[in-house]
Design a binder for these strands. Structure first.
Length: 86
DNA sequence: ATAATGACGTGAT
DNA sequence: AATCACGCCATTA
């Protein structure tokens, strides 16, 4: 089910530069829905688009967060491979 | 339209 | 510092 919200989230996440991490709250605010961090997570969970670097989206506290592909371990590996200190 | 769920966030214990 | 509880928004049944 594609919704405008999900589409916006994917686009915003796609704009995240390599080697940088963005929080769910930041992404939510970037699309015009501040506080919708949870909703962003819901979208990411349903989003399997490889063109979207969803592994660059982390928790506000600087933690990794979940991942739909091998768990947080895989996510950490990807971020670390881009030069992100985790 | 209502209830339940979930890759979050902040505050309190 | 770690853990528990409540609140937030969008999606799905």
């Amino acid at each position: 089910m594609k919704s405008h919200f999900a589409d916006s989230v994917r686009e915003a996440v796609r704009q995240i530069p390599k080697g940088e991490t963005r929080t769910y709250g930041e992404v939510a605010a970037a699309i015009g829905r501040p506080g919708a961090a949870r909703a962003v997570g819901t979208v990411m969970r349903d989003n399997y688009d490889p063109t979207v670097p969803c592994h660059r989206v982390v928790l506000a506290g600087g933690k990794l967060g979940q991942y739909n592909r091998g768990g947080p371990e895989k996510k950490r590996a990807l971020l670390r491979a881009e030069g992100v200190a985790v």
